[in-house]
Nucleic acid binder design. Structure first.
Lengths: 187, 187
DNA sequence: CGCCGGCGAGAACGATCGTTCTCACTCTGG
DNA sequence: CCAGAGTGAGAACGATCGTTCTCGCCGGCG
């Protein structure tokens, strides 16, 4: 575990701290301590906190979307079922210990106005997610508007689960998605 | 304008700065300068930054929900139309200059993990909004589940509009809401 | 062996923040 | 007229942050 390459150890520590407490609330010294690094080695890999934040968001985006895609493709149902499996995956995510909403929305609210790279990362993440849902919807024969509707439901479920600290919004969103797919005659 | 009572002037300045740039990104000296106060008078009215943040969130919650309720009740249509008018109001809000998403979601992501009063304010705000939509839904004869679905759509529209900087998600959410109301046979 | 480049550990630096204090000045009441 | 309470303006204070520097040490190569 502690023999992993330094970059990974740093990013693991940074992700847990940044996501769990907010970016500004976590100092570089806390990242150093949690990753078992020395200051010099930390700045050797990430020359500034901004670089670390950017790498954190980039890696999290990739992992998050990959985990979703794996769950959905392994769910192995019809295209319609795959679309609904997105909400099952959200429910699993919400129930994870330490869940605190969307890292990109959180960092956007905190730094989006002052740090362009954070705003861009959030926009990119949401665009990719929307595009992914749109792809599933197209495979299911649903109109593009339905994909947008399901994306809005997922987005709402995420922030609702975060603020209320309660994962039931995933099931609520799934039920609404089912109704919208019925209305669009997707089966 | 500058003869308003000091509390209001301070809160006006704090709201614009906190909402526009994030809470941690704004120092007390910036609030002092923007409100035309002296340090002593600022701390006289709000003994700590935490107190100011709490007052900011409290006032914004009341104003936000009052503005929504006024728009909806003045829209003067059927209960179903009132439910849909919520999304029209969201569209107006999204198009306001300086719109940057939900102040409560933003502050929750920034400080929710470390400042309990911020987390409580966000939870309260969302609960009140959900309760308001539930009341409209009940008046329209829609089942409670439908109210939850519309709330999720509204929530999703807010963060989507914020991250994309584009108010069209309000219309998208309204269309989805219409479909869900149709599915629930609310007319 | 002797030198030199790189390392760990942590102190140091400069900036910024929240908060409080100083100080000269101005009212007010007796 | 004068003591004293309160004010504006801003400096000061102590903490914290991001970042860099110091210093003692070690290992490899000529």
């Amino acid at each position: 575990m502690e023999h992993e390459d330094p970059r990974t150890r740093i990013l693991d520590a940074a992700e847990e701290l940044f996501y769990g407490q907010g970016i500004q609330a976590v100092g570089m010294d806390a990242v150093r301590a949690a990753s078992g690094m020395t200051m010099r080695r930390l700045y050797q890999h990430f020359p500034s906190k901004n670089d670390l934040v950017e790498a954190y968001l980039l890696r999290r985006d990739g992992r998050w979307r990959a985990s979703l895609a794996v769950h959905v493709s392994r769910s192995g149902g019809s295209p319609r079922d795959q679309l609904l499996a997105v909400f099952d995956w959200l429910g699993l995510w919400f129930a994870e210990p330490g869940f605190r909403g969307c890292a990109f929305v959180n960092s956007f609210g905190e730094l989006g106005a002052t740090t362009p790279v954070v705003a861009a990362a959030a926009r990119h993440h949401k665009e990719e997610f929307g595009g992914y849902v749109a792809g599933l919807a197209e495979a299911a024969g649903a109109p593009p508007a339905t994909a947008v509707h399901l994306t809005l439901l997922a987005e709402g479920a995420i922030t609702t689960a975060a603020v209320h600290g309660d994962p039931t919004s995933a099931a609520d969103a799934k039920e609404a998605a089912r109704l919208l797919l019925d209305a669009a005659r997707v089966r």
